[in-house]
Simulated scan of single mutants.
Amino acid sequence: MTALVDAAVLNAAPGRLEIEKLRLDVPGPDEVLVRVVSAGLCHSDLHEIDGTFASEPPIVLGHEASGVVEAAGADVVGLRVGDHVVTCLSVFCGRCRYCTGGRLTLCENRSRLSHQRPGPRLVNAAGRPVRPTAGIGAFAQAMVVHQNALVRIPSDMPMAPASILGCAVTTGLGAVFRGARVEPGSSVVVIGTGGIGTAAIQGARIAGATQIIAVDLIPEKLKAAERFGATHALHAGESDPVEAVREITGGGADFAFEVVGRSTTVEQAFAMLRPGGLATVVGMVPEHTPIRVSGPELFLQEKRLQGSFMGSNQFKTDIPRYVDLYLQGRLLLDDMVSEHVTLAGINEGFELLAQGRATRVVADIGEV
Rank of each mutant, 00 (worst) to 15 (best):
V60G: 02
L61D: 03
L61T: 00
G62E: 00
G62K: 00
G62R: 00
G62D: 02
G62T: 01
H63V: 01
H63P: 03
E64R: 06
E64V: 09
E64F: 07
E64I: 05
A65M: 15
A65D: 09
A65Y: 12
G67V: 04
V68R: 05
V68I: 07
V68G: 03
V68D: 01
E70F: 01
A71Q: 10
A72S: 08
A72I: 10
G73T: 04
G73L: 07
A74N: 08
A74C: 09
A74M: 06
V76I: 10
V76P: 14
V77H: 15
V77N: 14
G78E: 01
G78I: 07
L79M: 10
R80M: 07
V81I: 15
G82A: 13
G82E: 14
G82F: 10
D83I: 11
H84T: 02
H84G: 02
H84I: 00
H84F: 03
V86C: 15
V86I: 15
T87R: 12
C88D: 14
C88I: 09
C88A: 12
V91I: 04
V91S: 07
F92Q: 07
F92D: 12
F92C: 08
F92G: 06
F92H: 14
F92V: 05
C93D: 11
C93W: 01
C93A: 02
C93P: 06
G94I: 05
R95V: 11
C96T: 03
Y98I: 00
T100P: 05
G101Q: 10
G101P: 04
G102F: 08
G102V: 08
L104A: 06
T105H: 10
C107S: 01
C107N: 02
E108H: 10
E108F: 08
N109P: 02
N109V: 01
R110A: 07
R110G: 00
S111Y: 09
S111D: 08
R112A: 15
L113F: 11
L113T: 10
Q116P: 03
Q116Y: 05
Q116G: 00
P118R: 13
P118M: 08
G119A: 13
G119H: 11
P120E: 10
V123G: 08
N124P: 00
N124E: 03
N124C: 03
A125C: 11
A125H: 12
A125Y: 07
A126V: 05
A126N: 15
A126W: 13
G127M: 03
G127F: 09
G127W: 13
R128Y: 02
R128P: 08
P129L: 12
P129R: 09
R131F: 06
R131T: 14
P132T: 04
P132F: 06
T133M: 12
T133D: 08
A134Q: 04
G135D: 06
G135E: 05
I136K: 09
G137A: 09
F139K: 10
A140V: 09
Q141S: 13
Q141A: 11
A142K: 15
M143G: 08
M143C: 13
